[in-house]
Computed example of a mutant assay.
Amino acid sequence: MKKNVLVIDDSLPIRYLLEAVLSRKHKVTSAGDGLSAMAWLTKGNVPDLIITDLQMPNIDGWELIDYLSTSNLYQQIPVIVLSGIINSKETFQNKHYDNVRGILTKPFDPVMLLDKVDGIFDNRFMYVFS
């Protein structure tokens, strides 16, 4: 059964790229910002993984991760941050974002991202940082 991945990025080309790469193995839902993602989640949808950018209009990635990590419904969903902002593993650990399982910096290798996503689903990777 295909896993459901929620992709959140304000860049339409990035969303299209992620959908093209991930949809071969997974069901992909995309949103252009955190507000749209939150609306989708509040309709009872629960993805198996969330991939989010940090800099977005309306609700940015930081606010979204804050909400997810404090929500009883969503705090167990693994999150991969895919962003042009260079952050370290320690930044997320210091904020106690236990659900952030990976940080990938743009530009990224789509094949490598797919491998990391599959690794999280297969429990091969606990954390993914590059």
Rank of each mutant, 00 (worst) to 15 (best):
D53V: 00
A37E: 05
D115Q: 07
K27M: 15
I50F: 02
K25F: 12
G119T: 04
Y16D: 15
I65E: 13
T42Y: 08
R101A: 12
G119C: 08
V111G: 08
V111Q: 11
L114Y: 07
I103K: 01
L6K: 10
L22N: 06
G34E: 15
A20Y: 15
L12Y: 13
S69I: 05
G32F: 11
I65A: 09
L114C: 04
Q55R: 14
I103S: 00
S23I: 00
I85K: 03
L82R: 00
I120M: 06
L12I: 14
W62D: 09
Q55G: 11
V46M: 05
I51H: 13
D60C: 02
K106I: 11
L18D: 08
I50R: 03
I85V: 11
R124G: 05
L18W: 06
I59Y: 06
M112D: 06
N58P: 01
L17S: 13
V111C: 10
Q55L: 13
K116R: 14
Y74A: 07
A37G: 09
T70C: 11
L68S: 00
F108A: 07
S71I: 02
P47T: 03
Q75L: 15
L113A: 10
I59D: 09
G61K: 00
W62L: 11
V21M: 12
D53I: 00
V111R: 11
K25Q: 11
V100E: 04
R24I: 09
W40N: 09
N45K: 09
I14L: 10
I85A: 09
V81D: 03
I65C: 05
L113P: 04
N45H: 06
K95S: 15
I103P: 00
T70S: 14
F129H: 04
V21H: 06
N123P: 01
Y16R: 15
K95R: 15
K2W: 01
K25S: 06
V46K: 07
S88P: 07
N45W: 00
R101Y: 03
D115N: 13
F92Y: 14
D9V: 07
A31L: 03
L18R: 05
S130I: 02
K116N: 14
P107K: 03
D33C: 11
T105C: 13
P47Q: 08
K3H: 01
K2V: 06
S11H: 09
T105K: 04
D9E: 12
H26K: 01
Q93P: 08
L35S: 05
G61W: 06
H96M: 15
T42L: 14
P110A: 07
N87A: 12
P107W: 02
A39G: 05
G44N: 07
E90H: 12
Q75A: 12
Y67F: 14
R15C: 11
S23C: 10
L22Q: 04
D53P: 03
N58W: 08
N94Q: 15
I80K: 02
V46I: 11
G61Q: 02
L12G: 10
G34V: 07
I86F: 10
L73R: 14
M38F: 12
L54I: 00
I51R: 10
